[in-house]
Amino acid sequence: MKTRLNCPCGVSIQGTDEDDLIKKTQAHLAENHPGHDYTPDEILFIAY
């Protein structure tokens, strides 16, 4: 299960599970990188 992701902006995002990681990543993108929307599959592809 992937629960961590490093955004290229330098922010490290950690979730309790994959669904939580996706939710937190999408919230980070919406707040800090408007217009950069990624699907759950794309998020999990770059997560570890």
Rank of each mutant, 00 (worst) to 15 (best):
M1Q: 08
K2A: 06
T3H: 03
L5G: 03
L5W: 00
C7L: 13
C7T: 12
C7Y: 06
P8W: 02
P8F: 02
P8V: 08
P8D: 03
C9L: 02
C9K: 03
C9F: 03
G10K: 00
G10H: 03
V11M: 09
S12D: 14
S12H: 14
S12E: 15
Q14V: 15
Q14W: 12
G15D: 10
G15F: 11
G15Q: 13
D17L: 08
D17A: 06
E18Q: 15
E18D: 14
D19H: 11
D20S: 14
D20I: 07
D20P: 09
L21M: 10
L21D: 04
I22F: 13
I22A: 12
K23W: 12
K24L: 04
T25S: 00
H28W: 09
L29D: 00
L29E: 02
A30T: 15
A30W: 12
A30N: 14
E31F: 11
N32K: 15
N32D: 11
N32W: 11
H33M: 06
H33S: 06
P34D: 02
G35Q: 01
H36A: 10
H36T: 13
D37Y: 12
Y38S: 11
Y38P: 07
T39I: 04
T39E: 00
T39P: 05
T39W: 03
P40E: 07
P40C: 06
D41M: 11
D41Y: 01
D41R: 13
E42R: 11
I43M: 05
I43H: 05
F45N: 05
F45S: 00
F45E: 04
I46D: 12
A47L: 13
A47Q: 08
A47C: 12
Y48R: 15
Y48G: 15
